[in-house]
Design a protein around this nucleic acid. Structure first.
Lengths: 144, 144
DNA sequence: TCTATTTCGGACAAAAATATCCTAATTAAA
DNA sequence: TTTAATTAGGATATTTTTGTCCGAAATAGA
């Protein structure tokens, strides 16, 4: 469904958010270890997420990543997925046609509109805070 | 959502089915041209679909691909997607965890279950015949 | 039987995604 | 001011996906 980059990006963001709930900044190393991802690749993704304002990064000793509460409440899975994987998954044709819309539909157009609408709504309605909270109380897991 | 191989596979199958509605066998060349796909790559996918019994293939002059009406009514998008892309999309964790289930859920597990259930139902309820018919009456398109 | 046409299937190639390595820039603290 | 720790970012490597090439096998028809 999502690229590996996107999976890592979501998990990293959620881990950062969870730690930020306790005013803890986390390092790249910690993140990669906690979400079980390749460290250098994760670094790239975090760079990109930092550039697009999803998380805050700080260099130097005691540096690392963090996310303030306002962002946790504002940013949804939709923003993260969109920032990393683009909008192909939200707007691209299910069969790869360049031009596919209600006027020139591919055979699965109508059926995919419904699925994609469900997916989009779900992602847009799911905040980082909501998921970070679930993590924090041990309800959900980032590894295994 | 699907791999390129899967997109081509679905489009090829639908084109074969549409032509079979009129007792016409179609060649690889025709198929690749009609669905706007790379010919040799399409050949691989059709081989695989033929091996798994989704379509029938015949060698030699007047050879090509066809699909009988019984198969059109029986085979759904689910079978095609499953044959080409496997069941990752249906059963894999949205965040890539190896073990992710109701007892050990990732942060998005519950939300993804719903989306995937929608997708699975839609694919299982959509027969090749239904989509081939839409194509045949010009309601939908395979190119553009 | 011969020929032309078609799918089959293995080997190879190119492109994209995933992953690694190394140096630079920044910065907190000694 | 120096040092050590940390992210930033460019270059490179590996793996997977996508795509190509070519000869083999089958087969309809002359």
């Amino acid at each position: 469904m999502f690229s590996k980059a996107c999976e890592y990006g979501i998990k990293a963001t959620l881990f950062i958010a969870q730690k930020s709930l306790h005013q803890q900044r986390v390092s790249l190393k910690e993140i990669a270890s906690e979400i079980d991802s390749p460290i250098a690749f994760t670094a790239k993704i975090l760079q990109s997420l930092a550039r697009s304002g999803m998380v805050d990064s700080h260099k130097g000793p005691t540096g690392g990543f963090e996310m303030d509460r306002t962002k946790m409440d504002t940013i949804t899975l939709y923003e993260i997925v969109h920032a990393i994987d683009g909008d192909q998954i939200f707007h691209g044709c299910g069969l790869g046609l360049k031009q596919c819309d209600a006027n020139h539909p591919c055979p699965v157009h109508e059926k995919f509109v419904v699925i994609r609408e469900n997916l989009t709504q779900m992602l847009q309605n799911t905040t980082v805070y909501e998921l970070a909270s679930g993590l924090d109380i041990g309800l959900t897991l980032l590894k295994r």
